[in-house]
Design a protein around this nucleic acid. Structure first.
Lengths: 195, 195
DNA sequence: GTCTATACCTTGATAGAC
DNA sequence: GTCTATCAAGGTATAGAC
């Protein structure tokens, strides 16, 4: 592999990913990434032209992570309802992260939407949301809902986003579990009503 | 009124409130506030010791704004169900703001929870959420739900938070309206099932 | 009480030695 | 490819004249 596959480059992206998540993009400086990787600040510019280029790489990284998660959901079962239930289970599996830092895509989007001068395209910003939405929409369509599939998909993601915010603000694990159950019941309701 | 009621102080808080909402707290500099108010940077320190003191004043300001909103909801009717429906209507009344900048308390909390070195107490951070939660809980209790009242209250706020995030990310007014209807139907379902 | 000037630090980014 | 030294700009905060 070439320059893009450099070990140092990958380490920078991993450290930045973690720091952007735990501190926020704008609150993470090159010094922070340098401290965590041991790679000197000035060296970053050999791998990335700007800080936003690092952000783009981080977003791409999260994108592929979520793609893997969806694949795992697909592996659980061939039944679309079961797959959606597995999808809804995700936040519980990452409980500690959600409670401490919130949803990795929800919080990042909320932060970046406020930046008026972000060179990063809005398309890239919503790419992860699109990925999840389209996957959910496809499952609901398989359940027989051709018209309502997209609405259901957005509803599901919105429910999970709201859950993550409240669980994060109040650091409330019980709420996370209870609401996950509610969401899964909502899915089963739609599943059993299928036609 | 004394120093706290100074006109300049109030203008600073108002400008900061708007800027913190539209750009985020960390992305707002003293220069920005100075540009919007016409008050020179160095002058801020006569009214506030630090930037975080301004933030605290802004949070207090939003707290009283939400208190007023709740009073308006109370004025709509004496029926707790009607009051909750009016509460759920709030985001639609502030549609443009929600679509552009998200929920004024949700986005601020998401941003500040990430700051590890925020001198602002977590109690103050969640004060607005507490206000809304307690108000909703009281209404559900009036409907006869003594045990489930608090859960319902958190559910309602979570629903509205998730709605705001998705509506903001996709700048989707139709989703905001449709989901508000869903939430209000959910409230009526609980109301009509009261006992 | 109001304003100007400025100190001091950190930021993202660059230049150039090795 | 890797590192050090440094830049210019902008951040918060302070000192002191008026």
């Amino acid at each position: 592999m070439g320059t893009k596959g450099s070990v140092n480059r990958q380490r920078i992206v991993e450290a930045a990913d973690h720091l952007f998540y735990s501190r926020g993009y704008n609150q993470t400086s090159f010094s922070d990434i340098s401290d965590e990787t041991g790679i000197p600040r000035g060296n970053f510019y050999y791998y990335f032209k700007t800080k936003e280029d690092i952000l783009a790489a981080v977003v791409d990284s999260r994108l592929s992570i979520f793609r893997q998660m969806l694949q795992e959901c697909d592996r659980v079962s061939t039944d679309p309802g079961e797959r959606l239930l597995a999808f809804a289970q995700m936040p519980v599996q990452n409980e500690q992260q959600i409670l401490q830092y919130g949803c990795p895509i929800g919080t990042l989007s909320s932060e970046l939407v406020k930046d008026q001068d972000h060179g990063i395209s809005k398309a890239r910003l919503t790419a992860v949301f699109d990925l999840l939405r389209d996957w959910c929409e496809a499952r609901f369509k398989e359940l027989g809902y051709t018209e309502q599939a997209r609405d259901y998909a957005l509803d599901l993601i919105a429910k999970m986003q709201g859950m993550s915010i409240i669980a994060n603000v109040y650091n409330d694990a019980a709420f996370l579990h209870r609401t996950t159950n509610d969401i899964q019941q909502w899915i089963q309701q739609i599943t059993s009503a299928q036609h």
